[in-house]
Design a protein around this nucleic acid. Structure first.
Length: 261
DNA sequence: CTAGATGTTAAGGT
DNA sequence: CACCTTAACATCTA
């Protein structure tokens, strides 16, 4: 799941459910998800504090605690959150559970254990240290153009490079390029100003609409690529079968007739 | 049964 | 240095 629209939904979910409850107990069911902190230290850090506010940068969720540190979550390829008021059954693969004093709890779920949780002191330092570029939902057209023209790689590769632009992954770059009628393997540098502008506008549109639709690919408009992004899927515009290509180590889906240089 | 899956990181090569 | 490919991670599903 977790590209920018998914993580933005997680942010809204935390805001709606989990702020300002005192944490009574922190459970870690698999320490593989912890980065740079032990189970015991994490519990020490969180117990007795509460989550106060929540921000997102790229695919990272950063939650400020009353203990004046940030709890940082990354969701890997399969990750989500689940909040429940009562003693409900924990979802499969719950790896971190924050139990709140009021009886509710927040579970961090990571099936494949690719997600990571850490504690940091400063959000800006974290972004710097991890070399994250500006957030895709926040970058200016000028910076967008600059960063794409600096890259000699394919435009899909440049868009997915978290140090250039943070938040786009394999699925949404496919969608954005489809909407912009640009083939994924076109060189980023070769895009002219008009194409860059269209790409930028499509990026804004796709991210906003996908977030609004809760980041479920199958629930995106039927005119989009995503609901048809599967083997034997066909372009909703021209009905040609989608092509695939390995770009940046990932499978790109695109329409060779609608997306041409 | 096998291959591939929304992500990141490391290693090695051009 | 910029970029590419491959592999690894752990688990599930088509």
């Amino acid at each position: 799941m977790p590209e920018l629209p998914d993580v933005e939904n997680f942010k809204q979910y935390i805001d709606a459910t989990s702020l300002h409850h005192k944490i009574s107990e922190t459970e870690v069911h698999n320490t593989k998800i912890l980065k740079g902190i032990s189970k015991a230290r994490l519990a020490d850090t969180l117990n007795g504090t509460s989550l106060e506010s929540c921000r997102r940068h790229g695919k990272y969720l950063l939650i400020k605690t009353s203990g004046d540190v940030w709890l940082v979550m990354h969701f890997g390829m399969t990750g989500s959150l689940n909040y429940a008021k009562q003693e409900k059954d924990l979802p499969e693969h719950s790896r971190l559970i924050l139990n709140f004093e009021n009886g509710s709890r927040l579970a961090y779920i990571s099936m494949r254990l690719f997600g990571r949780i850490r504690v940091i002191g400063s959000m800006n330092a974290f972004i710097r240290q991890n070399k994250l570029g500006p957030d895709a939902a926040d970058i200016s057209l000028e910076d967008f153009e600059k960063t794409l023209h600096k890259s000699r790689a394919a435009v899909k590769t440049a868009l997915m490079d978290q140090s250039r632009i943070a938040g786009l992954g394999n699925l949404y770059t496919d969608e954005i390029l489809f909407e912009a009628h640009i083939p994924p393997n076109q060189k980023s540098q070769s895009l002219d100003a008009a194409q860059i502008k269209i790409l930028y506008q499509k990026m804004e549109y796709v991210l906003k609409e996908a977030t609004r639709r809760h980041a479920v690919p199958k629930n995106m408009p039927q005119t989009w690529l995503l609901p048809h992004r599967e083997r034997n899927g066909r372009c909703p515009r021209c009905h040609n079968p989608f092509k695939t290509a390995k770009i940046n180590g990932r499978t790109a889906y695109y329409c060779s007739s609608c997306q041409q240089e």
